[in-house]
Design a protein around this nucleic acid. Structure first.
Lengths: 138, 138
DNA sequence: TAGTAATTAGGAATTATTCTTGTTTAGTAT
DNA sequence: ATACTAAACAAGAATAATTCCTAATTACTA
């Protein structure tokens, strides 16, 4: 959290109660929550919190690269505070997103066609399948 | 297009004028268009087309795996008809999505943690960077 | 401790998508 | 060819997700 505060100051972002709580909540969440989900969780601690603030804060923090917006095919945007290199595997049944690391993928050369395309800055693997919990069910 | 018609029949989908035109348009598009974009393009040929039909048709074709919904962080859903294994590189500046193939990625083993997670059915690489056209500009 | 620019709350507005209803049409059986 | 029927369609209303607007509040600065 101290790191987060410093990062805010460096980015000229005021360290507000709302930002701290939102970041804390997102950082400890494992489920890549949506704005609405975060709002529901935070309203207990911050009864006057507005949904707009959640959206605005998420956008602000994302712009300053303090959090990431997760790529999904869902209609609601989902976020995560985990910023070290990692990838996602999504269960097509329950839609749970699970993190994993993949050093080989991070380092392997991209195809020539991509080198010709331009400069790659980030790479992400998104796997899809059926998680074990779901596989046990009909 | 003949293949598409047969695929429709096999899936018990009626071969309607709207479906044919939409699929034709999507199949020749290179830009992974959204529902709205497709609608604007199709309205010239199909003046009575409704936006809802575009949404409905895209959803139907996706369900039957005749087209794919592309993972993006944008608010509008984007689609493609290309169904052979391929991946995407997105320009963070102009948001253009470019396809590429990557045999090595398709075949390389996924990390052990993922094997423990469940059964992976599809894998997708999403790269992000700056395309050459954008790099030339300030 | 006061000043001020950034941030917030709350509600209105917008955007993207889905639903509802009545009409049309593709595929099928005559 | 013609009629039948379920599927698909058009149009507009409704919903969901997100953003905008304005006045009030608050974090940082002097």
């Amino acid at each position: 959290m101290k790191e987060f505060e410093n990062a805010c100051r460096e980015a000229d972002l005021k360290v507000t109660h709302q930002r701290l709580e939102l970041y804390r909540e997102l950082a400890q969440a494992e489920d890549h929550p949506s704005a609405e989900t975060l709002y529901k969780r935070l309203i207990k601690k911050l009864p006057t919190l507005s949904l707009d603030t959640v959206y605005r804060t998420l956008a602000t923090l994302e712009k300053h690269r303090l959090i990431t917006r997760v790529q999904t095919i869902e209609s609601q945007a989902r976020y995560e505070a985990k910023m070290d290199k990692h990838h996602h595997v999504v269960c097509s049944r329950c839609r749970t997103i699970t993190d994993f690391t993949w050093d080989h993928f991070d380092e392997v050369q991209v195809p020539k066609a991509v080198v010709g395309w331009g400069k790659v800055i980030r790479r992400n693997a998104v796997l899809e399948g059926i998680c074990k919990a779901c596989a046990r069910q009909p």
